[in-house]
């Protein structure tokens, strides 16, 4: 059901630029979480050498000492707003209310539910 989201993630992980290979995260960074990194150079240097290459499947990510990466527009990493969650939730509630209230409500609810699920699936993300 969430296949569109999946696409998104796939797209983003495919793009992988190798800017700033020099090994310095950014010139003269003011204290950031990685400010202590300079002490850690020796430890992380060899890793950086490998991850700079194309095989990022090597799981160095979690222990790497340096936050490298590329700059993107903030909007790109944030989830897009969507009305469909509300619509699907409402229709489910409606369907269950139909169980109590009778067939007419139930049928309307099912139609709403199908429509909103389709909307959810087809929404371009």
């Amino acid at each position: 059901m969430v296949s569109q989201e999946q696409k998104d993630h796939v797209e983003q992980q495919v793009v992988d630029e190798q800017e700033e290979d020099a090994g310095v995260s950014s010139p003269d960074t003011t204290p950031t979480p990685d400010s202590a990194l300079s002490d850690d150079k020796q430890e992380s240097q060899p890793e950086a050498a490998t991850t700079g290459g194309q095989q990022q499947a090597v799981r160095t990510g979690k222990r790497r000492g340096r936050a490298r990466g590329r700059l993107v527009n903030a909007e790109e990493v944030m989830p897009k707003p969507s009305l469909w969650p509300l619509a699907v939730a409402f229709s489910i509630a409606f369907v269950l209310f139909g169980v109590i209230a009778g067939l007419v409500v139930l049928v309307i609810g099912v139609i709403l539910l199908v429509a909103s699920i389709v909307g959810w699936i087809l929404e371009r993300r």
Partner: peptide, 19 residues
């Protein structure tokens, strides 16, 4: 406004996806 993205933020290639 810009933010910095790590490559591994969205999972490694070859790893199981979030979904």
């Amino acid at each position: 406004e810009q933010v910095r993205v790590l490559e591994e933020e969205h999972g490694q290639v070859g790893e199981r996806s979030l979904n």
